[in-house]
Amino acid sequence: MTRILLVEDNELNRSLVRAILSRTREPVLAGAALSEAGSLAEARALLAGAAFDLVLLDMHLPDGSGLALAQELQSTGAERPAIVALTAAVLPAEQAATLNAGCDAFLAKPYTSGQLIEAIGGLLN
């Protein structure tokens, strides 16, 4: 079973990801389990307790930048989950910083459901 962790502080956007994932017909995501965290602290707690295949990571979080978590995950080694950065920061420099920090894909808000599924599917397949 695919396990996905969503780290996003905005409740509406969490709800959106939830809805997109529940409606998708992408085979890889069939029956995927989604866990949600509203802050870096919550995300760290969840990551410590379970193994995830993929993290959807918002960059702008109340207790810091998602970049920090991406770097932490990258330093843990090869077994880390794939990371999709979700961010409202759209400047090229910011995008480069996200990818340098170890994110595997980058989605600028506002993203479409197609883009989200494509990014997740591409990494999980």
């Binding site: 959106l16 808000k109 479409t112």
Partner: peptide, 10 residues
């Protein structure tokens, strides 16, 4: 972008 994301997404 944050509220727009919800509007466009939903």
């Amino acid at each position: 972008r944050t509220p727009l994301n919800a509007i466009i997404g939903f």
